[in-house]
């Protein structure tokens, strides 16, 4: 029971860490490249939007599995 909760905590925590690092890099690069070439701002925003969708795919699935572990397996 405790191990299941620990596993869920690890899944959510490491997923959030990865998403946080990824979004930090993505946002930083978006600001940097928009400052370099402001005329490409819209295209860069669209690309950042698509990359954000890919970036949070694994943490989102992790959240789903963690909720299953917490509320169904351990609950």
């Amino acid at each position: 029971m405790e191990m299941v909760i620990m596993a869920a905590a690890l899944i959510i925590g490491l997923g959030a860490l990865g998403a946080g690092i990824g979004f930090g890099l993505l946002g930083g690069k978006l600001l940097e490249s928009t400052a370099r070439q402001p005329e490409l701002g819209n295209q860069l925003q669209t690309k950042a939007f698509i990359m954000a969708g890919l970036l949070d795919a694994v943490p989102m699935i992790g959240v789903g599995i963690a909720m299953y572990l917490i509320f169904v397996v351990a609950g």
């Binding site: 998403a19 925003q45 943490p59």
Partner: peptide, 25 residues
């Protein structure tokens, strides 16, 4: 949108992602 609002775009992206993960959970 736009280069003039780039800082707002990035701030909104972070907040949107946080809310998205929380809503999913």
């Amino acid at each position: 949108e736009g280069a003039r609002n780039a800082h707002l775009v990035v701030g909104n992206m972070f907040r949107a992602e946080t809310v998205k993960l929380a809503l999913t959970a």
